[in-house]
Simulated scan of single mutants.
Amino acid sequence: MKKEVVKVWIKRIAWLAVYAGVLVVWFHAVQRKSSTKVETVKVVITTSDGSRPLIGVTDVIKYVNRILDKDIESQLIGNLDALKIETALDSSSYIKNADVYLEANGKAVIHCDLRVPIVRFERGYRKGFYLDEAGNIIPVSNRAAARVPIANGYLGNFNQEFMADTTNRYRLVYDLAKKVYDDDFLKALIEQIYVENNGKVIMVPKVGREKIRFGELAKIDNKFDKLKAFYKTGMPNLGWNRYSYLNLEWEDLVVGEK
């Protein structure tokens, strides 16, 4: 009986020794990894619609280095605060969501999903900006220009709370631009949105010489349905460049003005 008890204890001690050995090896591996520098940095930049990004890999690396106050590749893995970097990147006007993590080989991976512009506001001597799908402001980039409609004209005074005011011209143009962005036909057609002093809108297409008198920003869906029908069925029969303006202000009609 005593021999069996001794054997049981010997087995337990042996297993404890194995576990202890594994823990020691693991601890030293973690310590060794924590005390080594980041080997390489991989930056992945994506946009939800595949459009050209407004910022590049170099911009992200520079931004991260400013956050850390040093070069990320000089950082010890154990000192790298991924959450801090993610939080700072998420606060950028260009970035919708950021993920930062370390791979087993010491590579730091930074994934940035960018905000996608749907319209660009030009305001003369004042600095322009983009709006994304949710109405967030995106600064104009020196690296690239988004291929979206340009909005200009009599836009009125700008304030940061414009999205909450459905009568604000910036908000009204955003609503119009969102309709354009969500429709493949209109997205390929509309190049410029000009707001007149009276608040009515004239749009300039990418092809043809006809400008589009959209009028007041009301019954938007109805007006766009008329416009698309005219381009698809009426224009091929009447001929391109026949009119100077296509007027959408008439009920259920598209009126050509020479």
Rank of each mutant, 00 (worst) to 15 (best):
K62S: 13
Y245A: 07
Q31P: 00
V195E: 12
E216R: 12
I118S: 08
N222Y: 09
S74A: 11
L80E: 08
F230R: 02
F27V: 08
W240P: 00
R213K: 15
A146Q: 10
V195I: 13
Y125Q: 12
I202Q: 09
S74E: 15
E86S: 01
K70C: 04
F158H: 07
E86Q: 14
K70P: 09
E4N: 06
V38R: 04
I220G: 08
I193E: 03
D99V: 08
Q31I: 01
S141Q: 03
Y101I: 07
W9S: 00
Q192M: 00
V5L: 11
A134M: 15
L131F: 14
K107C: 06
F185W: 11
G128C: 03
A145Y: 07
L76F: 12
V8K: 15
D221F: 02
E161H: 12
N237D: 02
D69M: 02
A145K: 15
N159V: 01
G153H: 09
K211S: 10
R147P: 00
I67M: 11
Y181D: 14
V22F: 13
T47G: 11
F121A: 10
G78E: 15
M1E: 05
E191T: 01
K84Q: 13
F214H: 10
S244Y: 09
V204S: 13
K33A: 14
K187Q: 12
I13N: 05
Y245E: 10
G256D: 04
Y170T: 02
R126C: 02
Y174P: 03
V195D: 08
I95C: 02
W9G: 05
I77Y: 03
Y19D: 06
Y194N: 07
V24S: 14
S35C: 05
Y101K: 09
R126E: 15
G208H: 11
F185R: 06
I55N: 10
V22D: 03
D99I: 03
F214I: 10
K2M: 07
L172N: 09
G234N: 04
V148W: 02
K219S: 13
